[in-house]
Amino acid sequence: MNLLRQLELEHMKSAIPDFGIGDTVDVHYMIKEGDKERIQVFSGTVIAIQGSGIRRVATVRRLVAGEGVERIFPLHSPRVATVEVKERGLVRRAKLYYLRDREGKGTRVKPNMGKLRFPRSGKGSGIQKTAPKTES
C-alpha cells in the first residue's frame, strides 16, 4: 500500500457511519461555548460527499426559518462525534445541488423504502426498511 495512504489510515477514525447522498442525518458536533464544550445537533440532508481518506467531508443542508443553511463536516475530525441516520433517501445523483434552487415541498428527498441495500460500502448487506443503528 502507498505509504502516504497508510499513514493517513493511522490518523483516521476506525469507522465512520455508513450514510449516503440524500440521507437525512443528525450530525452531533462539539462546539465550544466559552470554556465549556457541548454537543450540538445539526440535522439535515446530505447533499454532497467529497474527498477521500482523512480528507472526506460531507455537506449537510437544512432549512432554518425558510432559509437554507449548509454546513460542511470533516468526517474524521474529532469534533464530529457521531452521525445518526434518520432516513435513507432515494436519489439518482451524487450531488444534490439542485435542492438549493427549490423551496417548500420541492426540497423533499424521496424516502428509500428498502430499495437500496445498506451498508452501501460493505459486504453482506441485507435489505433494511428502518435506518440501522450507526456506530460512532
Binding site: L3, L4, L7, H11, I54, R79
Partner: peptide, 18 residues
C-alpha cells in the same frame, strides 16, 4: 512523500507534508 491533513486534539485541521 506528499501532503495530507491531520487533526489536532482540539479539532484543528493541520495541512501537513510528510
Amino acid at each position: 512523500l506528499g501532503m495530507t491533513q491531520i487533526f489536532k486534539e482540539d479539532g484543528t485541521c493541520v495541512p501537513v507534508t510528510i
